[in-house]
Simulated assay, not measured.
Amino acid sequence: MKILVTGATGNVGKFVVKELLHMGEDVVAAGTNKSKLQAMFGNTIDKVILDLTDNQTFSKALENIDRVFLMRPPHLGKPDDLYPFIQAMKDKDIRLVSFLSLMGVEKNPFPPHHKIEKQIEEAGIPYAHVRPGFFMQNISGIHSVEIRDRDEIFIPAGKSKTSFIDTADIGLAAATLLHNPIKFKHTAHTITGKEALNYSQIAAILSEVTGRTITYVSPSLFHYRHYYIKRRGLPKDYVNVTVALYLMTRLGTAKAVTNDFYHLTKKYPRTFKEFAIENINCFR
C-alpha cells in the first residue's frame, strides 16, 4: 500500500515526500496543480490531483492508500472544509493519518486546526498529529518581502518569543510517524526548534548574515491586518488566521521548547542562524 501526501508541492509536503522516499516508502504526491506536481517530481513517483473542496477527486486520490499526510491548505479558513475528506478517509479504513496541526492547539480552540484534530479523532481514524512551532519559512517566505524591500521584519508579535522550526525538520518528523503507523497510533507530537527567539533576535541574526541592518517593526494587529489585506492583497481568511496566531503568540503560546523532534528522529533541529545562512538569497 501507498502513502498519500497532500500539499506535496508545499513547504512541508515536499520534505515529507523526500523523507518517505528515503525510508523506502511508496508515495503518491497530491496537489491541485498538475503542472507544478510534474515540474517538482517528474516521473519519479505517482502523482494525483486532489482538491479538498471537491469530493469528486477523493476516490482516485485514496486508491490503494493506507496512510495519509494531511495538511490544511492556507486559503481554507473553515475547518469544516476538510470534513468530507476526513469522512472519505474513514470510509477507506486508513491505518494512520498524520495531520499537520499547530503548537498548543490542544488548548486553543480558535485556529481551525483544533476542530480538524477533533474531527479526525471523533471519526475513529488512527492519528499521529504533528504540532509544529512557527515555520522558519514564514520569515523567508511571506515575511521576506518587507525584509528585502525595507530591511524590516513586519510582524505583530510584540516582545514574545517563538521556537521556530525548519519545515525540513517537520517533514522528517511526519515521515517518521507515517513510517511507523503501529508505534505512533493515537499520538500527538509538539515539534519545535531547540531555542526560543524574539523577533529582535531574529532581526539581529539576519543583520549578521546579510551584512545589512534589519530592524523589527512590531505593528498593531489591526495595522498588520490592514496592510496584508489592502497592500499585499492576501485573502482575508488567510490573514485572519495569521492575526489569531500572532495574538496567541503575544500571550506566550509559541515560546515552549520541546525534545519531541529528537525523540522521534534522534537528530537535533536546525537553528535559525543555520537556516538563514542556507537561505540567504531569500533575504537579498
Rank of each mutant, 00 (worst) to 15 (best):
L4Q: 04
G7M: 07
A8D: 04
V12T: 11
F15Y: 14
E25M: 15
D26N: 12
D26M: 12
V28D: 04
A29W: 05
N33T: 04
Q38C: 11
A39G: 09
M40W: 04
F41H: 01
G42E: 07
N43V: 08
D46P: 00
I49H: 10
L50N: 06
T53D: 11
N55V: 07
Q56V: 08
F58R: 08
I65Q: 05
D66H: 09
V68Q: 02
M71S: 10
P74V: 04
P74C: 01
G77P: 11
P79F: 06
L82F: 02
I86E: 02
I86A: 00
Q87H: 13
Q87P: 00
A88G: 01
K90N: 02
F99Q: 08
S101V: 05
S101Q: 08
S101F: 03
M103H: 04
V105P: 00
K107E: 15
P109C: 00
P109N: 01
F110Q: 11
F110T: 12
H113V: 01
H114P: 07
H114L: 09
E117H: 07
Q119M: 14
E121L: 10
G124A: 02
A128S: 14
H129M: 14
V130D: 06
F134I: 12
F134G: 12
M136E: 07
N138P: 09
S140Q: 02
G141S: 03
V145K: 15
E146N: 15
I147K: 04
R148T: 05
D149M: 11
F154C: 07
A157E: 03
T162Q: 13
I165L: 02
T167D: 10
A168N: 15
G171H: 06
A174V: 09
A175Y: 02
T176L: 10
L177A: 10
L178A: 01
N180D: 08
P181T: 06
F184Q: 06
H186I: 13
T187H: 06
A188E: 12
H189C: 08
E195T: 11
Y199P: 07
S200G: 10
S200K: 09
S200H: 07
A204M: 11
A204R: 14
S207Y: 04
S207H: 10
V209D: 06
V209N: 05
T210V: 04
G211W: 02
G211V: 08
R212Y: 02
T213V: 11
I214Y: 03
T215N: 12
P219K: 05
S220H: 08
L221Q: 06
R225F: 07
H226Y: 12
H226N: 13
H226M: 10
Y227S: 09
Y227W: 05
K230N: 13
R231L: 06
D237C: 02
D237V: 10
D237P: 14
N240I: 03
T242H: 12
V243C: 06
A244Y: 09
T249Q: 13
T249F: 11
L251D: 09
T253A: 14
F261D: 03
K266I: 05
K266M: 09
K267H: 13
P269L: 00
R270D: 07
F272T: 03
F275H: 02
N279Q: 02
I280G: 10
N281C: 13
N281Q: 14
R284W: 14
R284Q: 15
